[in-house]
Simulated scan of single mutants.
Amino acid sequence: MSTNLQRTPVPAGIQMRRFSGSDADFAAAVEITNQVYPEYPDTVDEWRFGDAKRPAHVLQVRWFADLDGVPVAYGTYHHHEGMYHPQKFGLFVYVLPAYQGRGIGAALYDHLISDLEPHRPIMLRSRTREDMQRSLHFLLDRGFQEGMREWESRLDVAAFDPTPYQGHAATLRAEGIRITTVAELLEHDPACHEKLWQLNNELMHDVPHPDAPTEITLESFENWIFKNPNFLPQGFFVALDGSNYVGLSALWSSQADATELYTGLTGVRRAYRRRGIALALKLHAIAYAQQHQIRTVKTWNESNNRAMLSINEMLGFVKQPAWINFDKQLREG
């Protein structure tokens, strides 16, 4: 299928400009995305970290739509390292709320498509929340089709009562399973980095993805985890069977909001499932959040992942509007 399309006329006063990497451009792009998604604020430091650690083969290109010299919309296309394919790209357009509905986003989207064409893309992916009707219509009107849905769930940390779960960790210890932190493992296990990387790669194959997952290298894993400004070694929990790493659950800080934490990967090796290990890992994470006066913990789960959704529901996580992944096939691969 051709990527040719009827181009939207560029609104008067709008000029497309490539992202320069300057402090001002980073600040403008982060501000635009934060205004579109104010519940998930980013910081310039987080974006700069991502750029500095991204492998050379993983492409990311950014553009602005300036109105009379002022950025009012931001767009990007990029590879996804964890689902890498050289001709498959994520594509996202963000328009300041005050400037939506004027054709600016449509013109920027067309510009991104034109700029992307030399890479011969075969598929585009995007994502939005189900209650953002303008974004949904924008994608559907351009031929995107709904794919995987993810429930976002949030926990009111102060309201959580751990009493019903007292003794759960002791039961696991009697079976030889111990929960510890990455902080402790870094101090006592010289092979910690490699063991976590191997566990992560194994677990990621069982996590639902919009496309086939690809393993990341040990170097990339070390960069994204241990050098990440949001890494919390005391809030990153690992289940051990002796010296074997059999499960994990990670909390990540928010640079923009110290009262919130994000849950990263939670998973258990197949041979150790249905023993309450994932629940124990989540309980340790919630205890960490309570000890640090965190207000909210956010997490995401694929809509058909009943095992993890059931654990979260039992613990008091409350579902929010779902996030919908979209894809658009452009040509045969």
Rank of each mutant, 00 (worst) to 15 (best):
S126K: 07
T259D: 14
F226W: 15
A65E: 04
I32G: 06
Y99Q: 15
S310M: 00
P41R: 08
Q87F: 11
G82H: 11
V182E: 00
E81R: 03
T266D: 05
F144C: 03
A289P: 01
F64S: 07
G75S: 08
A212C: 10
T76A: 14
G147K: 00
Q60E: 13
T263W: 04
R18A: 13
E146P: 02
L112A: 10
E332P: 01
S254Q: 15
Q100R: 12
Q198A: 08
K319L: 03
E175W: 04
R127C: 10
E222K: 15
I177G: 01
H119C: 08
D115R: 12
A289F: 00
R18N: 11
V238D: 05
A56S: 13
E332N: 12
V70Y: 05
G103S: 03
L59S: 05
Q320K: 06
G69N: 04
T259M: 12
L172I: 01
H193W: 12
G143D: 08
D66Q: 12
R17W: 10
G316A: 03
E222V: 15
D42E: 14
F49V: 05
T263N: 13
R275A: 03
A322T: 04
P121S: 10
R173Y: 05
Q320V: 00
Q87Y: 11
Y245F: 11
G69Y: 02
A28S: 11
D241F: 11
R54S: 07
V36A: 06
S22T: 11
Q293T: 01
P38C: 07
E81F: 05
H79T: 05
Y165A: 01
T217V: 01
H111V: 06
I286D: 00
H292Y: 00
L203W: 06
N244M: 12
F26H: 14
Y165T: 07
W63I: 04
E46H: 06
Q291E: 13
A307C: 04
S254V: 14
W151A: 07
W323F: 10
F64V: 07
G333T: 09
N304K: 04
D42P: 03
R62P: 08
I32L: 06
F226R: 13
L116I: 08
Q6R: 14
F237L: 03
A322I: 03
Q133V: 14
H137W: 09
V238M: 05
P86V: 05
I14S: 09
F26T: 00
F317I: 00
H193C: 09
E332V: 09
L315Q: 00
